[in-house]
Design a protein around this nucleic acid. Structure first.
Lengths: 367, 367
DNA sequence: GTTCTCTCTGACAACGTTGACATCCGTCGT
DNA sequence: ACGACGGATGTCAACGTTGTCAGAGAGAAC
């Protein structure tokens, strides 16, 4: 009989032999099952320690059909929005005995598809998708195949796909109304990736705010189409080269806002003196830049916690019905708009609907 | 015969049945093996597509003894030092067909041990450890068990443990000499975690620079012992409450430096006017804060790439001998010290030894 | 015509674990 | 004294894949 497994590591068989019991008894001890005598248990525990035995999760997963791992698909861990989210997800997962397999996609739908595919081959027990660019039909198919699925900042119309998101429309409105209240009339939008659900929502909020203020929507004042410092710089440059450049900018996210900030500084323009800026996300950086950035905060840690908890509840069958958790965005007023920090400029009108207040939770009623 | 596997997903058996071949032939097609007729191959490919079949990586890993995944153990993904490193590792791994399982440990040796243990149960093909706090003996044991292992910013004396690190002693010297050259004589060190290899090295570099300048080492000027904004704030506060507070501070990392910056601002002190600050890492934030932080840069992306490439080479048996790659730290002069940005203050003496120049690579000669 | 070689194919036994079920042995109730 | 019961243990067949080996044809070489 082999003293060790193929790859040199001890198996349950060696433990059993050493403890003088059957492999089933060892299995029972490992899994804390009942009906094992104290004597046997002690011998098994000793043998495990002596051999430094570790159960093979692959074999276990193969027979149980559960891998105790989840897949996490994000755009780019180097984008400061994601680390707090990932960390929270990881913490919840670890606390419940799951591992996280991380995949970056750079907002590319094909890479995302590939990542999901590989994750599925790995037999992850569930999937969390943030900044997902894959067509909705693809995700519906996943759900139809009974893969537990939670999406962040996007919605999938399927009775088993849960979501946690901040109300980006409300957030866009919040940001724009703040600039409006400060007297700005030419407000630009620094757009994010066109395929992004969040981008479209923030743009919608921006337009809503303009309309409510009786201002026309000017397509020339929308520039950008990505999410990076460089994209922010370029978009800001394009805007500044307009005949009538904007006096204020609402950026898709803080990265774009920071890029814009760089470009403004490069041209010797002052913020907020010459141009006011509002970002989105409230990444750690935002509070530290010069001037500190006014931005719409997303509760990243809470989002991560909610997403992971929800997913694992689905995985463990505690509740499989769809649940959509919508969190309220929050305007963080710092110095990049010229308002009194810590409080929003007086809003021109009351926000409508539930968003903008506290987080609301909607059950699985829809679809 | 079951139409689908236990968990509802098609198996190689269904594919074989549908294509009218044996499972072995399907296996051959999947793995691109030779000796499959065009006709058979086509039928198999079609069946795979129709069933949306995905090979089960667990089963595959069980029989081949390789999981095509690596474990990545770091202190905290929310610490801005790590995302670029992680991203680079992930990219290399993905390009070579591996997945990354991520674990945060919060610098806690027990959690690290636990994470490594779980990763080993998962049968990862190798391990990358950054900010590792576990005793060296533990890692030597791992290496003795033939687990491919690469450590970042730490060294393990074992003929099979590779490492990639920046010369933190040289970095500490660089930072301190910069402050010295600017005329500072009371220079404090904002210490990182005492158990950290990097912390000890940077402290050593700091002391070396002092000695070379003929200055005494004053233990009172060392404060801190963690790595966070809060710790930086507190340590800075303690330093400022001294009878003779320092005129300059070298911080273990940029997070500590930023914390110090906050505390100084809170007390109405100016940087660099009243106190000069040098950080370490050159996180993205560093260039954006006010004032832009002078800091010692670590080439995080390159480190990640090197570590992952090295590990996978070991995993794939391309070369198993130990290799230590030492990269040179680089002083990035911005505004937090009062020097002319972009260039270091004139160093009081020539750096000694290979570090401080270009990166050097030492082979497996040691141990 | 026989043997050899080469291509293609499939049967079968692993891999390390758990689940279903069987068995053995005391002890208790009657 | 006997059956029933329940604790403690073991046997065996999965799980879904790949590795080993053997075999069937089809040409090629002698």
């Amino acid at each position: 009989m082999a003293r060790v497994g193929r790859n040199g590591q001890p198996t349950i068989k060696q433990v059993a032999a050493r403890a003088g019991v059957s492999i089933k008894t060892v299995s029972r001890v490992i899994n804390g099952a009942a009906y094992v005598s104290e004597a046997a248990r002690r011998r098994v525990v000793r043998a495990i320690a002596q051999l430094n035995y570790r159960p093979n999760a692959l074999a276990r997963g193969l027979v149980t059909g559960r891998s105790r791992s989840i897949g996490l698909v994000i755009a780019d861990i180097a984008n400061p929005f994601f680390p707090p989210l990932v960390r929270a997800i990881e913490d919840v997962a670890a606390a419940r005995g799951y591992n996280v397999i991380l995949c970056d996609t750079d907002e590319d739908a094909d890479r995302e598809r590939g990542a999901i595919s590989v994750l599925l081959e790995r037999k992850v027990d569930g999937l969390i998708l943030s900044a997902s660019r894959v067509p909705e039909a693809f995700l519906r198919q996943l759900a139809a195949d009974r893969i537990p699925l939670v999406v962040v900042n996007r919605v999938v119309r399927h009775p088993r796909v849960s979501a946690v998101l901040v109300d980006s429309v409300a957030g866009g409105r919040l940001a724009t109304e703040h600039l409006l209240a400060l007297g700005h009339r030419r407000i630009a939008y620094l757009a994010g990736p066109p395929a992004s659900f969040s981008n479209r929502s923030r743009l919608r909020g921006y337009r809503q705010a303009l309309v409510r203020a009786g201002l026309p929507f000017d397509p020339d004042l929308v520039a950008g189409g990505a999410t990076s410092l460089a994209a922010g710089r370029q978009a800001m440059a394009a805007l500044l080269d307009l005949d009538r450049p904007p006096t204020a900018v609402f950026a898709f996210d803080d990265l774009m806002a920071l890029g814009a900030l760089e470009e403004l500084r490069r041209r010797g323009l002052r913020v907020p003196g010459d141009v006011a800026i509002v970002g989105f996300d409230d990444i750690d950086l935002a509070a530290f830049v010069d001037p500190p950035l006014t931005t719409v905060a997303q509760p990243k840690v809470e989002m991560g916690r909610l997403a992971a908890t929800r997913l694992l509840d689905m995985v463990e069958g505690k509740s499989s019905a769809r649940r959509i958790v919508t969190l309220a965005p929050q305007l963080i007023v710092r110095h990049s708009c010229g308002a009194q920090p810590g409080q929003a400029a007086h809003a021109p009108q009351e926000p409508r609907g539930p968003a903008g207040r506290t987080g609301s939770i909607r059950g699985g009623a829809e679809e």
